[in-house]
């Protein structure tokens, strides 16, 4: 019975039926499933599936946003139960578009996907200077710092940011990831980042991989 409900909830998230997900999550809780299990056995696998559909080109951004919205209705219902239970965030990621660059769509997509995957996200917005990255990293102590750039002219700020952390002796305290349409793996390696995500979904997978290692 409860397996059936969880399965139905998973499909409802993938199929963007955001009117159904809250009710299904409630039914699962009423059937005696722990909030953390509803999250781990239905919600997160659903978002993983959405991520794969996005990466493969079957889903587009609006589909992802609708699925995250469907997930969110269920998640908000689960939240009180998660706080009591043995639920831990998968990790904290701090994001920002680098100084001189005001393009935020890519970063916002990654933000939504990371949240949907159970990560805490600290979003510094756009036009973030190396000094602000440093200051906020000290304050929020993220596991991973993600930098985004759309402009080829702003890509070097990523390098400057990593160099500033190195100068402060903090380069190894955080993992750095970079993304944005003009970037590639070689650039990421050149500037000493820990990883590069070709698109938002690979960004999520990269975060998972880094936190698992």
């Amino acid at each position: 019975m409860s397996a059936e409900i969880l399965n139905e909830l998973r499909s409802a998230i993938v199929e963007m039926r955001f009117d159904d997900t809250e009710g299904l999550a409630r039914r699962a809780l009423e059937a005696g499933v722990q909030a953390v299990d509803v999250l781990n056995d239905a919600c997160l696998p659903a978002l993983d599936e959405v991520g794969v559909l996005f990466r493969e080109g079957d889903y587009f951004l609006p589909d992802v946003l609708m699925s995250v919205k469907a997930y969110d209705s269920a998640y908000r219902l689960l939240l009180p139960g998660l706080k009591e239970g043995a639920y831990e965030s998968r990790g904290r990621v701090m994001l920002g578009t680098v100084e001189g660059d005001i393009h935020e769509i890519g970063k916002n997509i990654l933000h939504a996907l990371l949240q949907g995957n159970g990560f805490d996200v600290v979003d510094l917005g756009v036009n973030v200077s190396p000094a602000v990255f440093l200051e906020k990293a000290k304050e929020h102590k993220p596991d991973i710092i993600g930098m985004s750039a759309l402009l080829t002219t702003t890509m070097p700020v990523m390098k400057e940011t990593i160099e500033l952390f190195a100068k402060e002796g903090l380069k190894d305290s955080f993992r750095f990831i970079v993304g944005g349409s003009p970037l590639n793996q070689r650039f990421s390696d050149e500037i000493g980042a820990d990883g590069y995500g070709e698109d938002a979904q690979s960004g999520v997978e990269l975060v998972r991989r880094l936190l698992a290692s």
Binding site: E99, G100, D101, N127, L151, T153, T154, P156, V157
Partner: peptide, 8 residues
Amino acid sequence: QKRGLSRG
């Protein structure tokens, strides 16, 4: 950019 438009 070739004519000096700088970053930011």
